[in-house]
Nucleic acid binder design. Structure first.
Length: 554
RNA sequence: GCCCUCGUAGCUCAGACGGAUAGAGCAAGAGACUUCUAAUCUCUAGGUCGCAGGUUCGAAUCCUGCCGGGGGCGCCA
């Protein structure tokens, strides 16, 4: 019996009990939850329903819990129902009822854990969006890992996710990048506000090599244009390649330029003027963003006539809406949090539902060495890149360590530590569980043991405490995935996998699966093989949501 | 000054919607492999959940005020 089924049973039972006593059942909450108590003495599952309902129903919580217990205890699936503390109801399930979770896993396989929370919802997920003025650094790496995992989690809830990378090729940052390239190619010093690092020299020389003519001999304007087009292209290719190698691929690379060139920006500006949400003052055009929740009004068209950065974003939002996205997610670093209300205000001014724009703010990644913070500087070239990280620890460990913490907390990456103690990354703990399970199935196969169909197995034999723990942990997976999607917090999946791996390792320690010397596997062996396969499947499903591999051997 | 965010074990961090004795990994100490992968397991030690109030049957969680760290408050992008 799955937690969801149990919760439903508790709810219907409560409804029956209440109406039998003449109490209005509207006091029952929409969704009843059962939770796994930390203390095993408190049963397999517990519910606080009686305490929640007691007050509005005008009942004593312990008395109400007692009625519920009496009714629930009559069910075959439930072996005991006890009232505890101020009104908790502690439940124990029959082994065969509980093992329905194993059947569920093995029936649904890769689909186990998936849900329909966002069925058919069209989601635009924008993340990384770093300008191609240099390699992806640590901060960008975090979004690359978390954003991709979030995309997978949302997809598992039925959403149609488009992963999108926006870059601002119309702005001053690119200009600085181009000037740095040109200066390097000419053997001049890099401008004060330019970019340093070896990659600048490499790209500059590649731009020169890409031409049959002498690009440096061209008139300055023409020359710069070549460096811009070719240099940005090369840089972007490199970014795409390192992201791809990191396991993160995008569906759309969106150029800010295209919004200006297509006239989309001008059109949006006109719309805003027509609707009165844009006004002229001090030589510039201002968005009445303060009327839509922002701190102040924002300049959209500067007094020199050039569009401000937000102009592109307004048009971009509009473009996303035109493409039919119902939810636009942005993942930004904490240094951009001031942008949130602006973006929502822009959406509202354009007549869109501001709730369809959701900005996820993640704290920054700090580089630490020997416990001391290290300042990263693009100009000085002391930047740790995605490629450095992958080279130091590999894709799986890098992705996992970036995903497993909440983005609300700033994480410290100590390169010395991470490269020396790679085995301490919990990803290996989880992967090892999967490898062990894979090995187990291989061994069974080589012994000629066929676990057969799960329906034929006697799962009621799985009565050991560790078996029960493992089964109940498997049963948690669907709601973990659901909450990860709902809260946009993929790290929950990682934490869950660590729990699951632990439950499995503990089971493995106590419960022998393959009995040596037994030519004919007993029914317990078969049942345990089914359980093991279910555990392996869920580990694989979870790792897949994180974009981390599930190795068959280690 | 205003806004966002964090503060939990020596370290790195979990604890969504208020629930029972606050957890994990690492680090420290002690144990467990002639048998399915010891990258594992078991045990010990380690805490005024930043501080102070408030809400209530019940607060790490919600509210208020302080303290401390990080970030942001441009006609930059």
């Amino acid at each position: 019996m799955t937690p969801a089924a149990l919760a439903e049973l508790v709810r219907t039972t409560a409804a029956d009990v209440l109406s039998a006593r003449g109490v209005d059942t509207s006091v029952l909450p929409e969704k009843v939850t059962v939770e796994r108590p930390r203390n095993p003495e408190h049963g397999d599952y517990a519910t606080n329903l009686a305490m929640q309902v007691a007050k509005p129903a005008g009942l004593n919580p312990r008395e109400l819990a007692g009625w519920l217990a009496e009714s629930l205890a009559q069910r075959d699936e439930i072996t005991s129902a006890e009232v505890a503390g101020p009104g908790f109801l502690n439940l124990r399930l029959a082994a065969d009822a509980q093992a329905a979770i194993v059947r569920d896993v093995l029936t649904r396989q890769a689909a186990f854990g998936a849900g329909e929370l966002y069925s058919g919802l069209r989601v635009n997920l924008e993340f990384v969006s770093a300008n191609p003025t240099g390699p992806i650094h640590l901060g960008g790496s975090r979004w690359a890992a978390v954003g991709d995992a979030l995309g997978r989690v949302l997809t598992a809830q039925g959403a149609e996710v488009t992963r999108e990378y926006y870059f601002n090729d119309a702005g001053a940052q690119i200009d600085r990048f181009v000037r740095s390239l040109v200066a390097t190619a000419l053997g001049e010093e890099i401008p004060e506000d330019g970019y340093g690092g070896e990659y600048i020299a490499e790209i500059a020389s590649e731009v020169v090599k890409s031409r049959s003519d002498d690009v440096l001999a061209l008139p300055a304007e023409e020359r710069d244009e070549v460096f811009r087009r070719v240099g940005v292209g090369l840089m972007f290719d490199e970014i795409k390649r390192s992201l791809h190698e990191f396991g993160t691929d995008f569906d759309v690379f969106f150029h800010e330029d295209s919004l200006h060139n297509s006239g989309a920006v001008a059109e949006c500006v006109q719309r805003l003027k027509d609707s009165g949400n844009l006004y002229h003052a001090e030589g510039a055009w201002w968005l009445r963003s303060s009327e839509f929740g922002d701190d102040k009004d924002r300049v959209v068209i500067k007094s020199d006539g050039a569009p401000a950065y937000i102009a592109g974003d307004i048009a971009y939002l509009r473009d996303k809406s035109d493409r039919g996205f119902q939810l636009c997610l942005y993942m930004l670093g904490a240094d951009h949090h001031g942008y949130v209300s602006r973006l929502k205000a822009a959406a509202a001014a354009m007549g869109q539902d501001p709730d369809s724009v959701e900005v996820l703010i993640g704290q920054l990644v700090n580089l630490v060495r020997h416990g001391e913070p290290v300042r990263m500087s693009k100009r000085a070239g002391t930047v740790v890149t995605l490629e450095d990280l992958v080279e130091a620890v590999g894709v799986d460990a890098a992705r996992y360590s970036l995903i497993r913490s909440s983005v609300d907390s700033a994480v410290d990456i100590d390169l010395d530590l991470i490269s020396k103690h790679t085995n301490e990354n919990p990803v290996f703990y989880v992967q090892y569980a999967h490898a062990r399970l894979s090995s187990l199935q291989r061994n069974a196969l080589s012994l000629g043991i066929d676990r057969g169909d799960v329906e034929a197995a006697d799962l009621a034999l799985l009565t050991h405490d560790r078996e029960g723990d493992l089964i109940r942990t498997l049963g948690e997976f669907p709601r973990v995935v659901r909450s990860a999607a709902e809260l946009r917090e993929p790290h929950r999946v990682a934490r869950y996998l660590e729990d699951l791996a632990s439950a499995y390792h503990r089971f493995y320690d106590s419960c022998r699966v393959l009995q040596p010397g037994d030519d004919q596997p007993g029914p317990l062996t078969i049942a345990r093989l089914q359980l093991c396969e279910a555990a392996r499947q869920v580990l694989a499903n979870g790792l897949s949501l994180l974009g981390v591999s599930a190795p068959e051997q280690m």
